[in-house]
Amino acid sequence: MARYGMVIDTKRCVGCADCVVACQTENNVPEGFCRDWIVEALDGEYPDLRMEIRSERCNHCENAPCVRCCPTGASQITDGGIVLVEEAECTGCKACIASCPYDARFVHPEGYVDKCTFCYHRVKEGQDPACVAVCPTKCMHFGDLEDPHSEVSKLLRSRPNHALIPEAGTKPKIFYLT
């Protein structure tokens, strides 16, 4: 069984937000909401500065608190470890939103909770997620973390990297190359 994850090269990312718009049109994310977003983390004092630019989204955590706290099972882990929300089962109680340390979820205007799906509908067809496919700097990589020969596994072995808030213990599956 695949274990899908993303590896994002922060050296290449320019913070253009193409990944954000691409997600918006691909998945018809309503105006005013987003499933992914861009962070600029600056460190240092003028003129000695360092900056990491990151495209962030749901980390499809292996130890997903959003799935555990969902009272209805609407939040679930599907094939390949992709965390999805089944809109027909969601009550909009927002427990999952409160449980996510990354603030990756939001309430869709239609009432159910929405978030990044890793473009499940594309992945099923063997395509990369929309954000990965659009990125002009090709800094995003999607694939099976379980498979040692996958591009993502190779990148993780060859480059220093970090995940976000590992201390929260959610076992995130998006890694940032530094």
């Binding site: 913070g15 937000a17 954000v20 987003c34 992914d36 977003w37 861009i38 962070v39 600029e40 983390a41 600056l42 460190d43």
Partner: peptide, 8 residues
């Protein structure tokens, strides 16, 4: 440190 969500 400056932390900015620039878009989305």
């Amino acid at each position: 440190q400056e932390y900015t969500i620039t878009s989305g």
